[in-house]
Amino acid sequence: MSRALTTFAPFRLTASLLQRFGLGGRSLVIAVPVLWLAVFFLIPFLVVAKISLSEAAIALPPYLPILEWDGERAIFSFNLGNYRYLLDDPLYLNAYVFSLKVAFISACIALLVGYPMAYYIARSPEPRRTLLLTLVMLPFWTSFLLRVYAWQGFLRSNGVINNFLLWTGLIDQPLVMLQTDFAVYLGIVYTYLPFMILPLYANLVKLDPSLLEASADLGARPLATFFNVTLPLSMPGIIAGFMLVFVPAIGEFVIPELLGGPDTLMIGRVLWSEFFSNRDWPVASAVAIAMLIALVIPIMILRNAQAHAQEET
């Protein structure tokens, strides 16, 4: 314990200093994280909302103020044009629907791939279990960008997979895999798979084996036991994993940009190009606000489902 004390001496010094100035109170401790997150997480959304209502201009920064003072009175100029523009141009609605579709299908595939793996790891004896779990988490600690880059090398027409298939004689011409929607699904499933496996594992490892034995004793075949006992009991893990894959995948930028084709328009990519290529800050802000509102719906559905599943188990 004494070593730990000296390690944290700087913290203790700060604390005693704060106390000397009469700032040791409970409200101060609460205020620090609340204020930080309010200033750097909450208020930014208000700024985005404000700028989404202003008009683009060739200026620095590139938008017009919505509140102006003409010497006598303040003039508000709310401009809903950016939102109307989003509704008028099918590009934005299509991109959003397409993002939802890609995220949903990828999450389903990740579930189908991740569930058996999580099940196997959870049923493994101890030294192997930790090893497999570490192996699942290890890719997560290496750069996400570099792992997506690795798939580029795998999928391109002179890439590893095509070279292998050509060498075996299974195909005569290289398959076009890079810059397709297929590559985007693959990339999302690949990068988010650990996020599916970990909550499933955490749920399945808690499953009481005596329940499975009881089911078998009562004459249920293994498959029936799985569908009647294991699967319903692991519902909270399934929903948690689904949420961890589905929600972030909707706003994904790097994967469609590096693996998808020019027509693989996901909403995160649209926002990026609106901001960096078109330099239209107000439209980019409107896309962000629309995306935020649209994200709330699937999150609410999944949250409800999770609360429901937890009540049942």
Binding site: V48, P248, A288, M291
Partner: peptide, 10 residues
Amino acid sequence: VMPDVITGLS
């Protein structure tokens, strides 16, 4: 769960 593009822009 916030998409990076939104956090970054805001």
